[in-house]
Nucleic acid binder design. Structure first.
Ligand SMILES: [Mn+2]
Ligand SMILES: [Mn+2]
Ligand SMILES: [Mn+2]
Ligand SMILES: [Mn+2]
Lengths: 219, 219
DNA sequence: TATTATTTTTAGTCTTATCTAAATTTATAT
DNA sequence: ATATAAATTTAGATAAGACTAAAAATAATA
Protein backbone atom coordinates (compact mmCIF):
# COMPACT_ATOMS: atom_id res chain seq x y z
CA UNK A 1 0.00 0.00 0.00
CA UNK A 2 1.23 3.46 -0.87
CA UNK A 3 1.97 6.06 1.78
CA UNK A 4 0.65 9.59 1.55
CA UNK A 5 4.11 10.82 0.65
CA UNK A 6 4.57 8.24 -2.09
CA UNK A 7 1.21 9.25 -3.55
CA UNK A 8 2.19 12.90 -3.56
CA UNK A 9 5.42 12.14 -5.38
CA UNK A 10 3.70 9.94 -7.95
CA UNK A 11 1.12 12.62 -8.67
CA UNK A 12 3.80 15.27 -8.92
CA UNK A 13 5.88 13.25 -11.38
CA UNK A 14 2.74 12.51 -13.36
CA UNK A 15 1.89 16.19 -13.65
CA UNK A 16 5.40 17.21 -14.58
CA UNK A 17 5.57 14.44 -17.17
CA UNK A 18 2.38 15.61 -18.83
CA UNK A 19 3.82 19.10 -19.18
CA UNK A 20 7.17 18.13 -20.66
CA UNK A 21 8.63 15.16 -22.44
CA UNK A 22 11.59 13.10 -21.33
CA UNK A 23 12.70 12.28 -17.82
CA UNK A 24 11.79 14.53 -14.90
CA UNK A 25 14.58 16.30 -12.99
CA UNK A 26 15.12 15.98 -9.30
CA UNK A 27 15.01 19.72 -8.80
CA UNK A 28 11.75 20.11 -10.70
CA UNK A 29 10.12 17.70 -8.27
CA UNK A 30 11.72 19.40 -5.30
CA UNK A 31 10.42 22.80 -6.45
CA UNK A 32 6.97 21.47 -7.11
CA UNK A 33 6.65 19.71 -3.76
CA UNK A 34 8.50 22.42 -1.84
CA UNK A 35 11.01 19.97 -0.51
CA UNK A 36 14.75 19.45 -0.93
CA UNK A 37 16.53 17.65 -3.74
CA UNK A 38 18.08 15.15 -1.32
CA UNK A 39 14.64 14.11 -0.11
CA UNK A 40 13.50 13.69 -3.70
CA UNK A 41 16.42 11.42 -4.54
CA UNK A 42 15.56 9.21 -1.59
CA UNK A 43 11.94 8.92 -2.61
CA UNK A 44 12.69 8.37 -6.30
CA UNK A 45 14.91 5.44 -5.38
CA UNK A 46 12.16 4.06 -3.21
CA UNK A 47 9.60 4.38 -6.01
CA UNK A 48 12.02 2.74 -8.46
CA UNK A 49 12.57 -0.16 -6.03
CA UNK A 50 8.83 -0.64 -5.85
CA UNK A 51 8.54 -0.74 -9.62
CA UNK A 52 6.57 2.50 -9.77
CA UNK A 53 9.23 4.58 -11.48
CA UNK A 54 12.16 4.03 -13.79
CA UNK A 55 15.18 5.93 -12.68
CA UNK A 56 18.69 6.40 -13.97
CA UNK A 57 21.07 8.14 -11.61
CA UNK A 58 21.70 11.75 -12.62
CA UNK A 59 19.36 11.34 -15.60
CA UNK A 60 15.96 11.81 -14.01
CA UNK A 61 12.86 9.75 -13.45
CA UNK A 62 9.77 8.51 -15.28
CA UNK A 63 6.71 6.67 -14.08
CA UNK A 64 6.27 3.04 -15.09
CA UNK A 65 2.83 1.91 -16.26
CA UNK A 66 2.17 0.75 -12.75
CA UNK A 67 3.27 4.09 -11.33
CA UNK A 68 1.16 6.06 -13.76
CA UNK A 69 -1.86 3.95 -12.91
CA UNK A 70 -1.40 4.76 -9.24
CA UNK A 71 -0.86 8.44 -10.01
CA UNK A 72 -4.08 8.54 -12.00
CA UNK A 73 -5.97 7.07 -9.07
CA UNK A 74 -4.76 9.94 -6.92
CA UNK A 75 -5.61 12.51 -9.61
CA UNK A 76 -9.07 10.95 -9.91
CA UNK A 77 -9.65 11.21 -6.19
CA UNK A 78 -8.32 14.74 -6.02
CA UNK A 79 -10.55 16.02 -8.79
CA UNK A 80 -13.70 14.19 -7.74
CA UNK A 81 -13.36 15.59 -4.24
CA UNK A 82 -12.90 19.04 -5.74
CA UNK A 83 -16.17 18.64 -7.63
CA UNK A 84 -17.87 17.58 -4.41
CA UNK A 85 -16.51 20.55 -2.50
CA UNK A 86 -17.62 23.08 -5.10
CA UNK A 87 -20.86 21.58 -6.38
CA UNK A 88 -22.24 20.06 -3.21
CA UNK A 89 -20.69 21.99 -0.36
CA UNK A 90 -20.59 25.39 -2.04
CA UNK A 91 -16.88 26.13 -1.78
CA UNK A 92 -15.42 28.71 -4.13
CA UNK A 93 -13.05 27.15 -6.67
CA UNK A 94 -9.99 28.81 -5.17
CA UNK A 95 -10.48 27.14 -1.77
CA UNK A 96 -10.71 23.48 -2.72
CA UNK A 97 -7.21 22.53 -3.81
CA UNK A 98 -5.66 22.32 -0.35
CA UNK A 99 -8.53 20.31 1.08
CA UNK A 100 -8.53 17.93 -1.90
CA UNK A 101 -4.80 17.56 -1.33
CA UNK A 102 -5.73 15.79 1.90
CA UNK A 103 -8.86 14.00 0.74
CA UNK A 104 -7.04 12.44 -2.22
CA UNK A 105 -5.23 10.14 0.21
CA UNK A 106 -8.30 8.46 1.69
CA UNK A 107 -8.04 4.73 0.95
CA UNK A 108 -11.23 3.18 -0.39
CA UNK A 109 -12.00 2.34 -3.97
CA UNK A 110 -15.64 1.83 -3.07
CA UNK A 111 -15.78 5.30 -1.59
CA UNK A 112 -14.44 7.03 -4.64
CA UNK A 113 -16.64 5.04 -7.01
CA UNK A 114 -19.72 5.85 -4.96
CA UNK A 115 -18.67 9.50 -4.86
CA UNK A 116 -18.26 9.45 -8.63
CA UNK A 117 -21.78 8.08 -9.02
CA UNK A 118 -23.17 10.57 -6.48
CA UNK A 119 -21.69 13.41 -8.53
CA UNK A 120 -23.15 11.91 -11.73
CA UNK A 121 -19.79 10.95 -13.23
CA UNK A 122 -18.38 14.42 -13.87
CA UNK A 123 -15.86 14.65 -16.70
CA UNK A 124 -14.09 17.79 -15.47
CA UNK A 125 -13.17 19.27 -12.13
CA UNK A 126 -14.06 22.83 -11.07
CA UNK A 127 -10.92 24.16 -12.74
CA UNK A 128 -11.66 22.41 -16.03
CA UNK A 129 -9.15 19.61 -15.61
CA UNK A 130 -10.26 16.19 -16.88
CA UNK A 131 -11.18 13.50 -14.35
CA UNK A 132 -9.88 9.95 -14.91
CA UNK A 133 -12.65 7.34 -14.85
CA UNK A 134 -12.67 4.18 -12.76
CA UNK A 135 -10.48 2.45 -15.37
CA UNK A 136 -7.91 5.23 -15.36
CA UNK A 137 -9.03 6.61 -18.73
CA UNK A 138 -8.61 10.35 -18.90
CA UNK A 139 -9.38 12.98 -21.54
CA UNK A 140 -6.34 14.85 -22.86
CA UNK A 141 -5.19 17.86 -20.90
CA UNK A 142 -6.07 21.23 -22.41
CA UNK A 143 -3.13 22.71 -24.26
CA UNK A 144 -4.14 25.97 -25.91
CA UNK A 145 -3.88 29.08 -23.79
CA UNK A 146 -5.27 32.55 -24.32
CA UNK A 147 -1.73 33.77 -24.97
CA UNK A 148 -1.56 32.26 -28.47
CA UNK A 149 -4.57 34.21 -29.72
CA UNK A 150 -4.39 37.21 -32.05
CA UNK A 151 -6.62 40.29 -32.11
CA UNK A 152 -10.00 39.32 -33.55
CA UNK A 153 -9.88 35.76 -32.18
CA UNK A 154 -12.81 34.55 -30.11
CA UNK A 155 -12.68 31.68 -27.62
CA UNK A 156 -14.30 29.95 -24.69
CA UNK A 157 -12.55 29.48 -21.36
CA UNK A 158 -12.25 25.77 -20.58
CA UNK A 159 -9.69 25.46 -17.82
CA UNK A 160 -7.63 27.44 -15.34
CA UNK A 161 -4.36 26.29 -13.86
CA UNK A 162 -5.56 25.25 -10.45
CA UNK A 163 -2.62 25.77 -8.17
CA UNK A 164 -2.86 29.49 -7.51
CA UNK A 165 -5.66 30.95 -5.44
CA UNK A 166 -4.43 34.39 -6.55
CA UNK A 167 -5.24 33.64 -10.17
CA UNK A 168 -8.64 32.12 -9.41
CA UNK A 169 -9.76 35.04 -7.26
CA UNK A 170 -8.57 37.44 -9.94
CA UNK A 171 -10.62 35.60 -12.54
CA UNK A 172 -13.63 35.80 -10.23
CA UNK A 173 -13.14 39.54 -9.95
CA UNK A 174 -13.14 40.07 -13.71
CA UNK A 175 -16.04 37.65 -14.19
CA UNK A 176 -14.16 34.93 -16.01
CA UNK A 177 -15.25 31.39 -15.24
CA UNK A 178 -15.37 28.13 -17.17
CA UNK A 179 -17.48 28.63 -20.31
CA UNK A 180 -17.01 32.37 -20.43
CA UNK A 181 -16.59 33.74 -23.96
CA UNK A 182 -13.60 35.98 -24.62
CA UNK A 183 -12.63 38.10 -27.60
CA UNK A 184 -9.11 39.41 -28.02
CA UNK A 185 -9.35 42.97 -29.28
CA UNK A 186 -5.73 44.04 -28.99
CA UNK A 187 -2.24 42.84 -28.18
CA UNK A 188 0.37 45.28 -26.86
CA UNK A 189 3.85 44.24 -27.96
CA UNK A 190 5.45 46.54 -25.39
CA UNK A 191 4.48 44.55 -22.30
CA UNK A 192 2.88 41.48 -23.84
CA UNK A 193 -0.55 42.38 -22.51
CA UNK A 194 -3.88 41.52 -24.07
CA UNK A 195 -6.99 43.61 -24.33
CA UNK A 196 -9.94 41.26 -24.00
CA UNK A 197 -13.71 41.54 -24.06
CA UNK A 198 -15.33 39.33 -21.43
CA UNK A 199 -18.77 38.20 -22.61
CA UNK A 200 -18.81 41.10 -25.08
CA UNK A 201 -18.38 43.64 -22.29
CA UNK A 202 -15.93 46.51 -22.19
CA UNK A 203 -12.33 45.45 -22.92
CA UNK A 204 -10.06 44.77 -19.97
CA UNK A 205 -6.31 44.25 -19.89
CA UNK A 206 -4.72 40.88 -19.10
CA UNK A 207 -1.00 40.33 -18.56
CA UNK A 208 0.99 37.67 -20.44
CA UNK A 209 1.19 35.64 -17.28
CA UNK A 210 -2.56 35.60 -16.80
CA UNK A 211 -3.10 34.83 -20.50
CA UNK A 212 -0.76 31.86 -20.22
CA UNK A 213 -2.81 30.48 -17.36
CA UNK A 214 -6.15 30.46 -19.11
CA UNK A 215 -6.82 27.43 -21.28
CA UNK A 216 -9.29 28.03 -24.08
CA UNK A 217 -11.14 26.51 -27.01
CA UNK A 218 -10.67 28.72 -30.04
CA UNK A 219 -13.93 29.32 -31.92
CA UNK B 1 -1.47 21.27 15.09
CA UNK B 2 -2.31 17.74 16.09
CA UNK B 3 -0.96 14.73 14.25
CA UNK B 4 -3.22 11.91 13.12
CA UNK B 5 -1.86 9.72 15.86
CA UNK B 6 -2.42 12.32 18.56
CA UNK B 7 -6.01 12.71 17.37
CA UNK B 8 -6.56 8.96 17.53
CA UNK B 9 -5.25 8.80 21.07
CA UNK B 10 -7.37 11.77 22.20
CA UNK B 11 -10.49 10.25 20.73
CA UNK B 12 -9.70 6.88 22.29
CA UNK B 13 -9.17 8.37 25.75
CA UNK B 14 -12.36 10.38 25.34
CA UNK B 15 -14.38 7.26 24.51
CA UNK B 16 -12.88 5.24 27.35
CA UNK B 17 -13.53 8.10 29.77
CA UNK B 18 -17.17 8.29 28.82
CA UNK B 19 -17.58 4.59 29.54
CA UNK B 20 -15.91 4.56 32.94
CA UNK B 21 -15.04 7.05 35.62
CA UNK B 22 -11.62 7.82 36.97
CA UNK B 23 -8.31 7.77 35.15
CA UNK B 24 -7.80 5.63 32.06
CA UNK B 25 -5.27 2.80 32.19
CA UNK B 26 -2.40 2.47 29.79
CA UNK B 27 -3.40 -1.06 28.86
CA UNK B 28 -7.00 -0.08 28.13
CA UNK B 29 -5.74 2.41 25.57
CA UNK B 30 -3.28 -0.09 24.14
CA UNK B 31 -6.05 -2.69 23.71
CA UNK B 32 -8.40 -0.20 22.14
CA UNK B 33 -5.85 1.13 19.65
CA UNK B 34 -4.26 -2.25 19.07
CA UNK B 35 -0.86 -0.98 19.99
CA UNK B 36 1.62 -1.70 22.79
CA UNK B 37 1.61 -0.27 26.31
CA UNK B 38 5.06 1.25 25.82
CA UNK B 39 3.82 3.23 22.83
CA UNK B 40 0.86 4.45 24.84
CA UNK B 41 3.06 5.68 27.65
CA UNK B 42 5.12 7.66 25.16
CA UNK B 43 2.09 9.30 23.63
CA UNK B 44 0.40 10.02 26.96
CA UNK B 45 3.49 11.88 28.08
CA UNK B 46 3.48 13.84 24.87
CA UNK B 47 -0.19 14.75 25.26
CA UNK B 48 0.43 15.77 28.87
CA UNK B 49 3.34 18.00 27.82
CA UNK B 50 1.05 19.67 25.31
CA UNK B 51 -1.55 20.33 27.97
CA UNK B 52 -4.07 17.99 26.39
CA UNK B 53 -4.04 15.36 29.13
CA UNK B 54 -3.32 15.17 32.83
CA UNK B 55 -1.19 12.25 33.70
CA UNK B 56 0.24 10.77 36.88
CA UNK B 57 2.79 8.05 36.41
CA UNK B 58 1.40 4.60 37.07
CA UNK B 59 -2.00 6.14 37.86
CA UNK B 60 -3.48 6.65 34.43
CA UNK B 61 -4.54 9.57 32.29
CA UNK B 62 -7.44 11.98 31.84
CA UNK B 63 -8.14 14.58 29.19
CA UNK B 64 -7.89 18.24 30.14
CA UNK B 65 -10.63 20.61 28.96
CA UNK B 66 -8.43 21.46 26.03
CA UNK B 67 -7.87 17.80 25.23
CA UNK B 68 -11.56 16.99 25.47
CA UNK B 69 -12.37 19.86 23.14
CA UNK B 70 -9.97 18.47 20.55
CA UNK B 71 -11.32 14.96 21.00
CA UNK B 72 -14.85 16.22 20.43
CA UNK B 73 -13.77 17.85 17.19
CA UNK B 74 -12.53 14.50 15.96
CA UNK B 75 -15.69 12.73 17.12
CA UNK B 76 -17.76 15.40 15.34
CA UNK B 77 -15.86 14.87 12.12
CA UNK B 78 -16.02 11.10 12.38
CA UNK B 79 -19.77 11.01 12.90
CA UNK B 80 -20.64 13.65 10.31
CA UNK B 81 -18.63 11.79 7.70
CA UNK B 82 -20.45 8.60 8.69
CA UNK B 83 -23.77 10.32 8.07
CA UNK B 84 -22.52 11.47 4.69
CA UNK B 85 -21.36 8.00 3.73
CA UNK B 86 -24.65 6.36 4.67
CA UNK B 87 -27.19 9.03 3.75
CA UNK B 88 -25.58 10.50 0.65
CA UNK B 89 -23.35 7.80 -0.76
CA UNK B 90 -25.52 4.82 0.15
CA UNK B 91 -23.04 2.82 2.23
CA UNK B 92 -24.41 0.24 4.61
CA UNK B 93 -23.87 1.21 8.27
CA UNK B 94 -21.37 -1.57 8.85
CA UNK B 95 -18.96 -0.26 6.21
CA UNK B 96 -18.50 3.34 7.24
CA UNK B 97 -16.47 3.19 10.41
CA UNK B 98 -13.11 2.42 8.83
CA UNK B 99 -13.49 5.08 6.17
CA UNK B 100 -14.60 7.68 8.74
CA UNK B 101 -11.54 6.69 10.74
CA UNK B 102 -9.52 8.23 7.92
CA UNK B 103 -11.82 11.12 7.04
CA UNK B 104 -11.93 12.33 10.64
CA UNK B 105 -8.34 13.55 10.25
CA UNK B 106 -8.95 15.98 7.38
CA UNK B 107 -7.99 19.44 8.57
CA UNK B 108 -10.52 22.15 7.75
CA UNK B 109 -13.05 23.65 10.07
CA UNK B 110 -14.82 25.24 7.12
CA UNK B 111 -15.14 21.86 5.45
CA UNK B 112 -16.76 20.19 8.41
CA UNK B 113 -19.13 23.09 9.05
CA UNK B 114 -20.22 23.09 5.42
CA UNK B 115 -20.65 19.34 5.54
CA UNK B 116 -22.76 19.73 8.67
CA UNK B 117 -24.96 22.24 6.89
CA UNK B 118 -25.15 20.07 3.76
CA UNK B 119 -26.39 17.19 5.89
CA UNK B 120 -28.95 19.50 7.56
CA UNK B 121 -27.27 19.44 10.97
CA UNK B 122 -27.87 15.81 11.92
CA UNK B 123 -28.01 15.10 15.66
CA UNK B 124 -27.08 11.42 15.46
CA UNK B 125 -24.80 9.30 13.34
CA UNK B 126 -25.93 6.14 11.49
CA UNK B 127 -25.28 4.05 14.61
CA UNK B 128 -27.32 6.35 16.84
CA UNK B 129 -24.37 8.06 18.49
CA UNK B 130 -24.82 11.79 19.19
CA UNK B 131 -22.91 14.28 17.02
CA UNK B 132 -21.18 17.24 18.73
CA UNK B 133 -22.20 20.59 17.25
CA UNK B 134 -19.79 23.27 16.05
CA UNK B 135 -19.36 24.47 19.64
CA UNK B 136 -18.53 21.03 20.93
CA UNK B 137 -21.91 20.53 22.59
CA UNK B 138 -23.00 16.92 22.51
CA UNK B 139 -26.10 15.07 23.70
CA UNK B 140 -25.50 12.47 26.40
CA UNK B 141 -24.47 9.03 25.27
CA UNK B 142 -27.18 6.38 25.42
CA UNK B 143 -26.83 4.24 28.51
CA UNK B 144 -29.68 1.74 28.68
CA UNK B 145 -29.19 -1.52 26.85
CA UNK B 146 -31.65 -4.21 25.94
CA UNK B 147 -30.03 -6.45 28.54
CA UNK B 148 -31.67 -4.66 31.49
CA UNK B 149 -35.18 -5.31 30.25
CA UNK B 150 -37.57 -7.86 31.75
CA UNK B 151 -40.17 -9.98 29.97
CA UNK B 152 -43.09 -7.77 29.00
CA UNK B 153 -40.93 -4.66 28.52
CA UNK B 154 -41.22 -2.80 25.22
CA UNK B 155 -38.58 -0.49 23.79
CA UNK B 156 -37.24 1.32 20.76
CA UNK B 157 -33.73 0.73 19.42
CA UNK B 158 -31.78 4.02 19.49
CA UNK B 159 -28.14 3.07 19.08
CA UNK B 160 -25.80 0.20 18.27
CA UNK B 161 -22.22 -0.05 19.40
CA UNK B 162 -20.49 0.92 16.18
CA UNK B 163 -17.18 -0.86 16.28
CA UNK B 164 -18.20 -4.32 15.14
CA UNK B 165 -19.27 -5.00 11.59
CA UNK B 166 -20.30 -8.47 12.77
CA UNK B 167 -22.93 -7.04 15.07
CA UNK B 168 -24.28 -4.58 12.53
CA UNK B 169 -24.66 -7.18 9.81
CA UNK B 170 -26.36 -9.51 12.28
CA UNK B 171 -28.83 -6.75 13.19
CA UNK B 172 -29.48 -6.21 9.49
CA UNK B 173 -30.23 -9.90 9.09
CA UNK B 174 -32.81 -9.92 11.88
CA UNK B 175 -34.30 -6.62 10.69
CA UNK B 176 -33.25 -4.50 13.62
CA UNK B 177 -32.31 -0.93 12.81
CA UNK B 178 -32.55 2.40 14.61
CA UNK B 179 -36.17 3.07 15.56
CA UNK B 180 -37.19 -0.58 15.48
CA UNK B 181 -39.63 -1.54 18.25
CA UNK B 182 -38.74 -4.56 20.37
CA UNK B 183 -40.69 -6.49 22.98
CA UNK B 184 -38.97 -8.86 25.39
CA UNK B 185 -41.14 -11.93 25.72
CA UNK B 186 -38.84 -14.19 27.70
CA UNK B 187 -35.50 -14.37 29.46
CA UNK B 188 -33.67 -17.68 29.84
CA UNK B 189 -31.64 -17.74 33.04
CA UNK B 190 -29.66 -20.76 31.82
CA UNK B 191 -27.68 -18.98 29.09
CA UNK B 192 -28.73 -15.38 29.63
CA UNK B 193 -30.55 -15.24 26.32
CA UNK B 194 -33.56 -13.10 25.47
CA UNK B 195 -36.58 -13.95 23.41
CA UNK B 196 -37.60 -10.82 21.59
CA UNK B 197 -40.35 -9.79 19.18
CA UNK B 198 -39.01 -7.52 16.43
CA UNK B 199 -41.77 -5.14 15.27
CA UNK B 200 -44.36 -7.53 16.71
CA UNK B 201 -43.12 -10.41 14.56
CA UNK B 202 -42.34 -13.92 15.69
CA UNK B 203 -39.96 -14.05 18.67
CA UNK B 204 -36.27 -14.57 18.00
CA UNK B 205 -33.46 -15.35 20.40
CA UNK B 206 -30.74 -12.85 21.25
CA UNK B 207 -27.65 -13.67 23.31
CA UNK B 208 -26.59 -11.62 26.35
CA UNK B 209 -23.75 -10.20 24.35
CA UNK B 210 -26.01 -8.95 21.58
CA UNK B 211 -28.49 -7.58 24.13
CA UNK B 212 -25.69 -5.63 25.80
CA UNK B 213 -24.80 -4.02 22.49
CA UNK B 214 -28.22 -2.63 21.68
CA UNK B 215 -29.06 0.70 23.30
CA UNK B 216 -32.76 1.32 23.74
CA UNK B 217 -35.40 3.73 24.99
CA UNK B 218 -37.77 1.91 27.29
CA UNK B 219 -41.40 2.70 26.55
C1' DT C 1 39.94 21.48 -23.43
C1' DA C 2 40.20 23.12 -18.90
C1' DT C 3 37.70 25.40 -15.50
C1' DT C 4 33.74 26.83 -13.24
C1' DA C 5 28.89 26.37 -12.14
C1' DT C 6 24.94 23.63 -11.51
C1' DT C 7 22.64 19.52 -10.50
C1' DT C 8 22.32 15.37 -8.19
C1' DT C 9 23.59 12.00 -4.94
C1' DT C 10 25.48 10.36 -0.57
C1' DA C 11 26.42 10.54 4.34
C1' DG C 12 24.90 11.60 8.54
C1' DT C 13 21.33 13.81 11.68
C1' DC C 14 16.58 14.65 13.40
C1' DT C 15 11.62 13.80 14.51
C1' DT C 16 7.57 10.94 14.96
C1' DA C 17 5.72 6.80 15.99
C1' DT C 18 6.36 2.29 16.50
C1' DC C 19 8.38 -2.05 18.73
C1' DT C 20 10.95 -5.48 22.23
C1' DA C 21 13.18 -6.34 26.40
C1' DA C 22 14.35 -4.98 30.87
C1' DA C 23 13.46 -2.39 35.02
C1' DT C 24 10.29 -0.52 38.17
C1' DT C 25 6.01 0.16 40.50
C1' DT C 26 1.57 -1.38 42.03
C1' DA C 27 -1.75 -5.02 42.97
C1' DT C 28 -2.86 -9.67 44.57
C1' DA C 29 -2.47 -13.77 47.15
C1' DT C 30 -0.60 -16.63 50.26
C1' DA D 1 4.12 -9.26 55.67
C1' DT D 2 6.19 -11.32 51.99
C1' DA D 3 6.22 -13.32 47.67
C1' DT D 4 4.35 -13.45 43.27
C1' DA D 5 1.81 -11.53 39.48
C1' DA D 6 0.33 -7.80 36.69
C1' DA D 7 0.70 -3.26 35.00
C1' DT D 8 3.50 0.45 33.70
C1' DT D 9 7.53 2.86 32.49
C1' DT D 10 12.22 3.24 30.66
C1' DA D 11 15.96 2.09 27.54
C1' DG D 12 17.34 1.10 23.27
C1' DA D 13 16.28 -0.21 18.33
C1' DT D 14 13.90 0.46 13.88
C1' DA D 15 11.55 2.63 9.89
C1' DA D 16 9.75 6.54 7.22
C1' DG D 17 10.50 10.91 5.75
C1' DA D 18 12.50 15.01 6.12
C1' DC D 19 16.81 18.06 6.58
C1' DT D 20 22.04 19.98 6.03
C1' DA D 21 26.52 19.60 4.43
C1' DA D 22 29.79 17.34 1.62
C1' DA D 23 31.01 14.63 -2.40
C1' DA D 24 30.37 13.33 -7.07
C1' DA D 25 28.62 13.81 -11.68
C1' DT D 26 27.00 16.60 -15.38
C1' DA D 27 26.49 20.98 -17.84
C1' DA D 28 28.07 25.46 -19.21
C1' DT D 29 31.71 28.63 -20.27
C1' DA D 30 36.07 30.66 -21.24
MN1 LIG E 1 -1.77 15.28 -1.26
MN1 LIG F 1 -8.46 21.05 -9.85
MN1 LIG G 1 -8.63 7.77 12.95
MN1 LIG H 1 -20.68 5.73 14.38
Amino acid sequence: MLTQSEENYLKCIYHLSSKSNGAINTNAIADSLETKAASVTDMIQKLANKGLASYVKYKGVNLTNKGEKEALKVVRKHRLWEVFLVKELGFNWDKVHDIAEQLEHIKSTTLIDKLDKFLAYPKFDPHGDPIPDANGEIAPNPTTTLSILKPGDVCTVICAKDTSSDLLLFLDRINISLGTQLEVVDYLEFDGSYSVKVDNGNPITLSTKVAENIFIDKL
